[in-house]
Amino acid sequence: MTQTSSPAVPAPNTLRQEFLETLRIAGAGLAIAMTLRIVIFQPFTIPSSSMEPALVIGDYIIVSKFAYGWSRASLPFNPPLPDGRLLGKGAERGDVVVFRLPRDPSQTWIKRVIGLPGDRVRVAGGQVYVNEVPIPQTPLGLTQDHDAPDRTVLQVRERQADGRGYVTYDGGAGQPGDDTESYVVPAGQYFMMGDNRDNSLDSRWSGEVGVGFLPADHIIGEASFVLASWKPGAALYKPWTWLNFQWDRFARPIR
């Protein structure tokens, strides 16, 4: 008769070593992920319609941290570090940037850079002027607002001096923000506007209401591309919505 043997039970020391090794691997992976998030890129989800049509509610975007260098805004929880940015370059007109709201750094907003330090910016009849030169506009026809299909808007292409173009929404004449005073952008700050011009609280409004002037050290990074997009209403706590994708918005560069 052949005698069978029971499988060996790992010694307590072996179990402890395996547990510690698992913790070490998990900790290393978490450290790498956190480093990438702080230094290279960070994901964000778009919660509002202020940057339509470039960005819509439900877009899951990737933001480049190294585009403008790093500041305290680049770090989790916005720690109380000195002002200023480490390395990088300044933002340019037409860039789409994610930033910490000056009046409440716990909030992250996204807008387009319209005015650089020293620029004079004003809006007259919906036309944006920078240093008294109008940003060229080309009407592209009427369409329905992506996030509010019952709203009809005019698509307007704006083109920056360097040739970069982007499309804005115009809700019609006489809207708040269509006519403003002339703003002179202070040193080290930027003038920001949303592409959905009649549905955006931005630098046309004071910091108590909108953005006001945006200090450079509040910038988190440049919005690079839309990785994926979910229809409004999708949420982690609603498993039945996880596959409610907006398929036509996957892997789209942000212009």
Score class of each variant (00 low, 15 high):
residue 58 G to A: 02
residue 184 V to R: 01
residue 140 L to E: 14
residue 13 N to V: 05
residue 28 A to T: 13
residue 11 A to Y: 08
residue 61 I to K: 00
residue 235 A to Y: 12
residue 34 M to W: 08
residue 233 G to H: 03
residue 244 N to F: 08
residue 173 A to T: 13
residue 61 I to V: 13
residue 89 K to R: 11
residue 135 I to W: 02
residue 31 A to Y: 02
residue 123 V to M: 15
residue 93 R to Y: 07
residue 118 G to K: 06
residue 10 P to M: 09
residue 69 G to H: 12
residue 152 T to V: 06
residue 241 T to F: 02
residue 200 S to R: 09
residue 25 I to V: 14
residue 70 W to V: 03
residue 49 S to N: 02
residue 211 V to S: 13
residue 168 T to L: 15
residue 195 D to G: 04
residue 131 N to I: 12
residue 123 V to D: 07
residue 81 L to R: 13
residue 1 M to P: 14
residue 129 Y to L: 13
residue 172 G to I: 04
residue 250 F to Y: 05
residue 185 V to K: 02
residue 142 L to V: 13
residue 48 S to M: 03
residue 64 S to I: 02
residue 3 Q to E: 14
residue 237 Y to G: 06
residue 55 L to F: 07
residue 220 I to K: 09
residue 209 V to R: 05
residue 127 Q to M: 10
residue 68 Y to T: 07
residue 102 P to H: 05
residue 106 S to L: 04
residue 142 L to I: 11
residue 127 Q to C: 10
residue 184 V to D: 06
residue 132 E to Q: 09
residue 59 D to I: 04
residue 149 P to M: 09
residue 177 G to L: 00
residue 139 P to D: 12
residue 200 S to D: 13
residue 194 G to N: 06
residue 188 G to W: 07
residue 191 F to M: 00
residue 192 M to W: 00
residue 208 E to I: 11
residue 218 H to M: 11
residue 200 S to K: 02
residue 107 Q to S: 01
residue 184 V to N: 04
residue 145 D to W: 11
residue 147 D to K: 07
residue 49 S to F: 11
residue 49 S to Y: 07
residue 1 M to I: 07
